[in-house]
C-alpha cells in the first residue's frame, strides 16, 4: 500500500503553484520558461498518480506526450528568447514590452 491518490494530487498542485509563481513573478524570460516546465512536470506527476489509482496505462501514455510538448516548447521558447536577447540586449519581459511600445521593431 502506498499513499492515497489525493496526496499525490496535492503534491502536484503544490508543484504547479510553485511553477505558476515562477512564471508570474520572476522578471526574466528564461525563468518564466522554467516555471512553465515546472507546471508541465506537476501535471505529469498527477497523471502518473491517476494512472496508478485506476490501474490504467492511459495516464502514462499522456505523460509521454507531455514530455514531447515540453521538449518542443523549450526548444522554440529558448530560440525565441535568444532572438529577443539579440534585439534588446535583455531578457526582461517588461523591457521587451517597453521597446515595442516605443514604436516599430526595436
Amino acid at each position: 500500500m502506498i499513499v492515497p491518490l489525493n496526496h499525490i494530487l496535492l503534491l502536484s498542485g503544490l508543484l504547479f503553484s510553485l511553477g505558476m509563481f515562477c512564471t508570474l513573478a520572476r522578471r526574466n524570460l528564461i525563468m518564466m520558461l522554467l516555471g512553465i516546465e515546472i507546471m508541465l512536470n506537476a501535471a505529469a506527476v498527477a497523471f502518473v498518480g491517476a494512472s496508478l489509482h485506476w490501474q490504467q496505462m492511459e495516464g502514462q501514455a499522456i505523460v509521454i506526450f507531455i514530455l514531447a510538448v515540453a521538449a518542443t516548447e523549450v526548444s522554440i521558447g529558448l530560440a525565441a528568447i535568444l532572438v529577443v536577447y539579440r534585439r534588446t540586449d535583455s531578457v526582461d519581459p517588461a523591457m521587451e514590452a517597453a521597446l515595442w511600445e516605443k514604436g516599430g521593431r526595436p
Binding site: 512564471t23 508570474l24 513573478a25 518564466m32 519581459p93 517588461a94 517597453a98 515595442w100 511600445e101
Partner: peptide, 9 residues
C-alpha cells in the same frame, strides 16, 4: 502595457 506577466496573471 505589454507586460506579459500581468496578462498571464
Amino acid at each position: 502595457g505589454g507586460m506579459i506577466q500581468y496578462r498571464l496573471m
